[in-house]
Design a protein around this nucleic acid. Structure first.
Lengths: 210, 210
DNA sequence: CTTTTATCGATATCGTTTTATCAATTATAC
DNA sequence: GTATAATTGATAAAACGATATCGATAAAAG
């Protein structure tokens, strides 16, 4: 299957397709058209067609659409949801603890196996390791994914430790732009950025009404 | 100030600038150049210059840069961080509770004043209201922002209730595309989408090494 | 006062993503 | 078997965002 060469934007839409396809699998009669998916998810039809064609092994059939089973399998393959990825989390503050207690990650293929903070402790019944043990544990467990939930000031230094020890993908919740070596991906999950967009929209909507 | 007509991407970068500018306000000597900010945040210089020029009242001064005070004020204005926005949260499952217990939102101008779920209860010492009271409370408190943390299946129906009652901005954590009336903004914060990007990157990096 | 130089602002170029268009294909109906 | 209609796949156009280039400006230095 074509795993590489999928645009980031397409990749971000795949979970939406998957969710819809799985929850409607039975009633779709085996095939579904790009137009139907687009209408359901409120997306552009051509965009959906291109996305689906990218991930689906089999071609779409005129007058019928794409075979739902192949679509689901193709998307799952691209997302790697069949093999759970082990990850570590650095920063056991408020947000870090909240994420640790969130049970929904495994469903998406992420398994947080260890958490770290400045000093040892426990949170939600899970052991928090001292930062000094970071390098050791990453390399021994051969971890490739890390979640960063430390304050912005320390994000880069934590990031440096991580990449030096072979981390390839970082899910960054700190409000800081991280510099990483080539080949390492940073996915920023900045609550503040999202709130920025929301809040600005709200403000201009309110202004309109004055 | 120019609140409307700011691109979404610029808007998402504003919190980064703000964070950097505030934490370096004293040592910057009053003025800072776009190049300096760009270097610190690992961004393109021209991009930063354009962004800063968009939000700053005063023009940048050759050989000096932008006046930091004006920058901070301009960004805060755009983000509406001076007036905390009251919000409600619907869905007190794992993720919802995690967000409720997260103390960092007010810092960014969001204040969750009430939470709702199918049935009443308490979480983290906060009262959870029954969904039936949603309409009433939204209109009485004149809430304009809502956070959705319900399962994908019920996201659209919750969303409909919200928009019917005057909600203008929705922060959607459910893996579902929401259809909203014109003028309502949905900001998707899909963990699954982010994980999709991370996981796919990891997969293709690992494939390279084989 | 003049020269130098850092910085901005504007314009142009480039690449990516989205959207539009249309011919090719094939199931379905007659 | 032929016509019809839905749907795809491919190509083109448009929109958007990021980056490069360069002249204009004003502070600083001589």
């Amino acid at each position: 299957m074509k795993i590489q060469g999928i645009s980031t934007q397409t990749l971000r839409r795949l979970p939406y397709y998957l969710n819809y396809l799985v929850s409607n699998e039975t009633e779709s009669g085996g095939y579904i058209s790009a137009a139907a998916v687009a209408a359901a998810l409120n997306l552009n039809e051509v965009q959906v067609r291109k996305d689906l064609a990218t991930v689906c092994q089999t071609r779409g059939v005129p007058k019928k659409g794409f075979f739902v089973g192949d679509l689901i399998e193709g998307i799952r393959d691209c997302l790697g949801q069949n093999n759970v990825n082990d990850a570590i989390l650095v920063g056991a503050g408020n947000l870090g603890r909240a994420l640790l207690s969130y049970k929904g990650f495994e469903q998406y293929g992420l398994n947080i196996v260890a958490a770290f903070d400045l000093k040892e402790g426990t949170a939600n019944g899970k052991k928090i390791f001292a930062l000094s043990k970071l390098s050791d544990i990453i390399s021994r467990l051969n971890i490739k994914i890390a979640v960063i939930t430390v304050p912005a000031e320390s994000a880069q230094s934590v990031c440096d430790i991580l990449t030096r020890n072979g981390i390839l993908a970082i899910w960054n919740f700190a409000p800081a732009h991280l510099k990483v070596p080539y080949g390492v991906l940073v996915q920023n999950e900045n609550m503040a950025s999202s709130l920025a967009v929301l809040s600005n929209h709200l403000k201009s909507e309110m202004d309109k009404k004055l």
